[in-house]
Nucleic acid binder design. Sequence first.
DNA 1: GTGAAAGCGCTAACAT
DNA 2: ATGTTAGCGCTTTCAC
Lengths: 337, 337
Amino acid sequence: MTIKDIARISGVSITTVSRVLNNRPDVSDESRRKVLEVIENNNYIPNNSARDLVKTKSDAIGLVVRGVSNPFYTDIIRAVESGITAGGYTMVMQQIGSNEDELKRAAMMEREKRLRGLILLGGRFDYTPTDLALLNVPFVCCSFSNHYGTLTEKEYSSVSIADKETAYQAVRHLIANGHRRIAALITCTDDRSISQLRYEGYVQAMEEAGFPLEDPLVICTDTYNIQGAYQAMTRALDDGGNFTAVFAISDNMAIGAMRALRENGRAVPEDCSVIAVDGIEVSDYIDPPLTTFCQPMEEMGRHSVEILLDMIGKHSGNRHETLPTVLRQGGSVRPLV
Amino acid sequence: MTIKDIARISGVSITTVSRVLNNRPDVSDESRRKVLEVIENNNYIPNNSARDLVKTKSDAIGLVVRGVSNPFYTDIIRAVESGITAGGYTMVMQQIGSNEDELKRAAMMEREKRLRGLILLGGRFDYTPTDLALLNVPFVCCSFSNHYGTLTEKEYSSVSIADKETAYQAVRHLIANGHRRIAALITCTDDRSISQLRYEGYVQAMEEAGFPLEDPLVICTDTYNIQGAYQAMTRALDDGGNFTAVFAISDNMAIGAMRALRENGRAVPEDCSVIAVDGIEVSDYIDPPLTTFCQPMEEMGRHSVEILLDMIGKHSGNRHETLPTVLRQGGSVRPLV
DNA sequence: GTGAAAGCGCTAACAT
DNA sequence: ATGTTAGCGCTTTCAC
């Protein structure tokens, strides 16, 4: 069933059918009605490949994710997919390994699939103009941004939270509760990552308060997952673990750390307070509920798509959005007496 | 940059370039070398839309998911994406609402995107041959199957666990620990769902043991999410909650229920045991770790893709795989004394 | 308001 | 081994 068949059956020309298909105004009501009826009756759906070929563009938007099973990303992915589909586009998703280059992958996708745009979920903070030259379509950095000034604002779009500031607030919250010996649970794979940024917030809060920033307070793992955090915290505790509170750079890592603390005989929050950044749903259901700064996941996904569709459709320029976080008071932090 | 340009620059015909592009043997080494060089130099990538149009097929495989943020699905999605990309195809993902018809949606995708095949993640159990007539490409049901005999085995493919049997085992485990008054936490939106199937396993175990199967033991929620389970369990407890153990049809729901129990002053497992089916990572990190039957998520995704690619590439027939589950002993079940 | 016809970039007969 | 050519299904001038 092609446009030709519809034209034949409707008794009009191919052109007229095409006009109806594309909601063009220059068709008589009579023709339009007839064509629509025939389309309906025959369950006809236009061939996208042919449309794309003529328009030299596809209707696809690429989503490149570093780790689709990261629970923090799943709500964003859902929002992104909804937005893309609602906008009449198709979402093509690819995930990349932790040491793959998302820009190279994005560039390949762009050309192979003739993408209209890209959303990068999780990525490096130090793109250079040369890196960006690989990309010829609009793109939005979601949940991260260019914090090291290697790019100017006009060169890219982003939707993110104020990572350093939020981490700073989290640590301030612990300090306000009387904690001085505060450990930081971070990942150390890359010094231009979200982990590094949040770590900077931790450092700032600690230095500002004049607290010692000793090495054993910084607990490193090489992955963002629960298990890695659990193992790293277990090692830290075996090594003494001389701290009264932990700032974890993600909820997931905090959950892993909490099990390690528990197994080590330290109750949360009685013996050790825990705070994090992310605000995934499950962390509000554990015991004790995690105190954490929530990112507006759904909103981040939605805004990323909005910005991208504006750039594609209205040729609007690059935009940046920094969304607010909200402290969700759980039960994992308590005042140090 | 099109195939025409490459041909012109290389000094050969379009056909020869096309042959090189498709790794055909009937090209002289000399021509091949030259063409490849020109392609390389010009950073040429063939236009997929044009290829798809000619072949009347795309390289896309559709993934239809009911709820991408369901943590149980995320590992499957990751495995599916890896398999599809590794196989040289493109994954196009769409999620659907809880009361949308996945087959209608799949059929639309199939035709619009000219899909080569489909993977359905989560879906109804009562497809009829008429329903399937909507689909003209191979498809695999992942994590569910046709358990009501409305289809013959040759009509579809599936990768799943033995849901009813696994639920039965879970409840048997509670019974072996001395529990008689066992509540079932299920969803009641649809009587042809995975929830229903697991509920049947519960019923079988209870009846076999000769235990009363009273209404207040069946706790219903209309969603699969944590919050819904939390609310349903809270209601059940407010109504008396006369049971010593809970069988939850999913880890996620068990986690919601555990918070409700806790807030109601019932310790798990001292006052109430909890068991579930799924085996998501986080449920092993909560306190107490959830005792649950683990589904092999990664394997399920991988096998689904394998079966689908075999059907697409080798035209092999429909296959069915029932993968084994493994009991992960947490600390949420204890013997009733 | 409508239709004829020229491509979009590619593949696959069919020649040579 | 290589080239010519006819489409794949659609959009879009351009003419009427």
